[in-house]
Simulated assay, not measured.
Amino acid sequence: MSKIDPSEYVVTRDDTIHDVDLNTEVVRLPDGRRLTDDLAEQLAAEALAEARRRNLIPGRKSLTGPGVHSPRVQFRVPEAILEQAERRAEAEGVSLSTLAREALEHYLAS
Score class of each variant (00 low, 15 high):
Arg54Phe: 08
Pro66Ile: 13
Phe75Ser: 07
Ser2Glu: 13
Glu83Val: 14
Ala49Ile: 00
Thr24Ser: 11
Gly93Thr: 03
Ile81Thr: 14
Ser110Pro: 01
Asp37Trp: 03
Arg76Asn: 15
Ala49Lys: 10
Asp31Lys: 09
Ala85Pro: 03
Gln84Asp: 14
Leu29Trp: 02
Gly67Tyr: 02
Ala91Val: 01
Arg28Ala: 10
Asp38Glu: 13
Leu63Gly: 15
Arg88Cys: 14
Ala40Leu: 01
Ser70Pro: 03
Glu25Arg: 07
Gly65Val: 03
Glu79Tyr: 13
Val27Gly: 00
Ala91Tyr: 06
Glu105Leu: 12
Val94Gly: 04
Arg33Asp: 02
Pro58Gln: 04
Lys3Tyr: 09
Ile17Pro: 00
Gln74His: 12
Val27Asp: 04
Glu41Cys: 09
Val11Phe: 11
Glu46Phe: 00
Arg28Thr: 08
Pro66Lys: 15
Thr64His: 15
Val68Arg: 08
Arg88Pro: 09
Val94Phe: 06
Pro30Thr: 03
Ser97Met: 02
Leu96His: 02
Arg34Leu: 02
Ile57Gln: 14
Thr12Pro: 03
Thr36Met: 02
Glu46Tyr: 00
Arg101Glu: 10
Leu29Tyr: 04
Ser7Gly: 11
Val26Gly: 00
Pro6Ala: 03
Val77Ser: 05
Glu46Gly: 04
Leu99Lys: 02
Gly32Arg: 01
Gly65Arg: 01
Glu90Ser: 11
Ala47Gln: 08
Val77Glu: 05
His106Ile: 05
Gly65Leu: 03
Lys61Met: 14
Ser2Asn: 12
Leu99Arg: 00
Val68His: 06
Val27Lys: 04
Lys3Glu: 01
Gln84Val: 09
Leu99Met: 01
Leu108Trp: 00
Val27Ser: 00
Gly65Ala: 01
Leu99Pro: 03
Glu46Ile: 10
Arg52Trp: 07
Asp31Pro: 05
Asn55Ala: 13
Asp19Lys: 08
Thr36Gln: 06
Gly59Met: 03
Val20Gln: 08
Thr16Asp: 06
His69Leu: 15
Arg54Cys: 03
Ile17Val: 12
His106Val: 06
His106Gln: 11
Thr12Phe: 06
Ala80Pro: 04
Thr98Leu: 12
Gly32Asp: 06
Val27Phe: 06
Leu108Ala: 06
Pro66Leu: 15
Asp38Tyr: 07
His69Asp: 15
Glu8Cys: 12
Arg52Gln: 10
Thr36Arg: 01
Asn55Lys: 12
Asp19Val: 04
Arg72His: 13
Asp37Tyr: 12
Lys61Glu: 14
Asp21His: 12
Glu41Arg: 09
Thr98Lys: 14
Ala47Ser: 09
Arg53Asp: 08
Leu96Ser: 03
Val77Gln: 05
Ile17Ser: 02
Asp15Trp: 09
Arg88Trp: 13
Thr24Cys: 02
Leu43Gln: 10
Asp38His: 09
Leu29Lys: 01
Leu48His: 13
Gly67Phe: 06
Glu79Ala: 14
Ala89Thr: 05
Asn23Thr: 15
Arg76Trp: 10
Ile17Ala: 07
Glu86His: 04
Ser95Asp: 07
Ser97Glu: 08
